[in-house]
């Protein structure tokens, strides 16, 4: 049985109406209904952070948000980070510091790091590691990711 609804939200600054199933998560709606596949699924139960998005400015796991809940909300995904002027310093730092290998956790790390720097523009290494502990990476050993975030904070 499918039970569809129309949801109105602002996605990456664009007002958007989309058709979703009642049982869709925000993650599923973003990926399969809207086509914004930048947000990734790693575990679908809130334990890897790959699906991190900002909802009304707050870091959330989009797999743990029902699509119905974003009615009227403002959602930012990795696709919404770069501005018309280009990559934000955080994205640039990830590139220059080689902070990604396979890149699948990268969208989640970028969104979470953006939320971190919005809340705490000058985090310590520990604060960065704590904030990002909800985002798993299996390639990098985190070293270069943490360095990139700290570098972006300096920028």
């Amino acid at each position: 049985m499918t039970d569809r609804m129309i949801v109105s939200a602002t996605i990456n600054g664009e007002p958007l109406e989309f058709l979703a199933d009642q049982r869709d998560s925000l993650l599923e709606a973003l990926r399969e209904r809207i086509g914004l596949t930048g947000t990734k699924e790693g575990c679908n139960d809130g334990n890897c952070g790959a699906c991190s998005v900002l909802m009304d400015g707050r870091l959330v796991n989009s797999c743990l948000v029902m699509a119905a809940e974003v009615e009227g909300a403002d959602v930012t995904t990795v696709e919404g980070l770069a501005t018309e002027d280009g990559l934000i310093p955080l994205q640039q730092a990830f590139l220059e510091e080689a902070a990604l290998q396979c890149g699948i956790c990268t969208p989640g790390f970028l969104v979470a790091s953006k939320a971190l720097l919005d809340a705490n523009p000058n985090p310590t290494e520990y604060e960065a590691r704590y904030w990002l502990a909800g985002n798993l990476c299996r390639c990098t050993g985190y070293d270069k990711i943490i360095r990139a975030v700290l570098k972006a904070a300096e920028a």
Binding site: T39, T77, L81, A82, L95, L110
Partner: peptide
């Protein structure tokens, strides 16, 4: 790189 930090 650019594709991978922009979700593309």
């Amino acid at each position: 790189g650019a594709d991978k930090v922009t979700g593309r």
